[in-house]
Nucleic acid binder design. Sequence first.
DNA 1: TCTGGGCCTG
DNA 2: CAGGCCCAGA
Length: 464
Amino acid sequence: LNSGRQAKRARVENIIKGITCTDVAPNQHEETGCVREGEERVEVSALHQRHVEASGTESLSESHRYLREVRTKFSPICEDEKFPRWSVSSEASTDEVLSKSCSESESSSGKIHQEYILKYELTRAVSRSVDSIFKSMPLVQTPTEMENSETTLPPHLAECMEDKLRCGTAEVLLPDVQTEALSLVVQKPELERPRNFILQSTSAAPLTPKSPIFFSSEPEQASKQDNITHHRRHSFKCLPGGCSEGGEPRLDTYWNLVKVKSKVTSRCVRSPHTHTVPVDQVILESLQLPHVKLEPDCFEKNNLYMLNVSECLTTNHLKKAKLMFFYTRYPSSVVLRMCFHDVQFTRCITSQLIKWFSNFREFYYIQMEKFARSALLEGAPDVRDLTVSRESELFRSLNMHYNKANDFQVPDRFLEVAEVTLREFYIAISMGKDRDPSWKKTIYKVICKLDSDVPPEFKSHHFG
DNA sequence: TCTGGGCCTG
DNA sequence: CAGGCCCAGA
């Protein structure tokens, strides 16, 4: 399990740092021996180059000396044996590093030290970022373990990331993220979800129920959402015209919002399905990511969570709406507000609910027309022979759609309305009214008058 | 112009 | 179930 965690952690680190660093083998940093020799040569060479620029000294041994010097000065706060250069205790502040490394340094080597400082900060920021992700996944790694975890960033990756940051190029893929278009129905977020700082992501992207970042308040529903996949893609876009490396195809080239794309984004600018990805602000600031937008109304959202008011509709809401359909096919906005009092009503939420009922009606009328036509084809002698009972196939079809779990006692009134609807369709079709493109509208007018009051249980705060 | 509803499509 | 489009009514 530990090796799995480490591998996963490493993967996430790689992902955050930009997996497109093509010159680095995925597991290279774990094979420290031979790799580090090569790295050292490269690094010494690079340092030498910089040292030459900084001091005008041509001596390669001078660069070696500087490298040793820098490492020595870093050693008190570098604990990891694998990557002593970059493994820095998270408790060590930047100031400490600066004071330990730079205070005694000569001006000629100051630039080199500064680069180490930069890398150190970069490393720590990435590590915190990874930590914040792993801390939110107790199934993967416990908080206690995370507290003891240290910053471990292979230097080649640090450089890779540094380069990316410098030129503003990075593409970040988070594991287990959704890649598909998503349903508007999301798993209800956990109350403790809000963290100190959040990144806005503009979509509905329910995480896997296993993830504690968001989880279903109704576990039995979580697995039923067919269109909720366990993969999601977070893309850090890049600025056009930004650098590209290795001829690798790049998107745009600037660090952008962490986006979890969903269809809804095109419809709702301020989507109620907006998901928030918890990331420490420290990371964002230290990485100095352009276009990283901090949620401005996170406190307001906190209050919503405290009040147990959801910003988005959940699978439970959908289930409830379907049961409501047994009573009302055309619910008014007042009824909707009463029945979904635990939802913060926005235009988007309202239209989504309306859309739900529109879809419910669509299915309902399609079934009615289908069964009416088949009854006609079977030569039903009299419209009065057309009945809808709990045993009838039509009812089973409807019940399967609106009450799949079959744990709700469908009111008799619904059977009556269904029967009326079926007969209306039967009559209209038998009279050839279906030649008129808008022949169904007459039926709709009849059916909308047959709505019943929704029982008070649906308006109760304890539904579900 | 906005909103709700229906139809079609994926 | 959701998005796009169209239409009617307020």
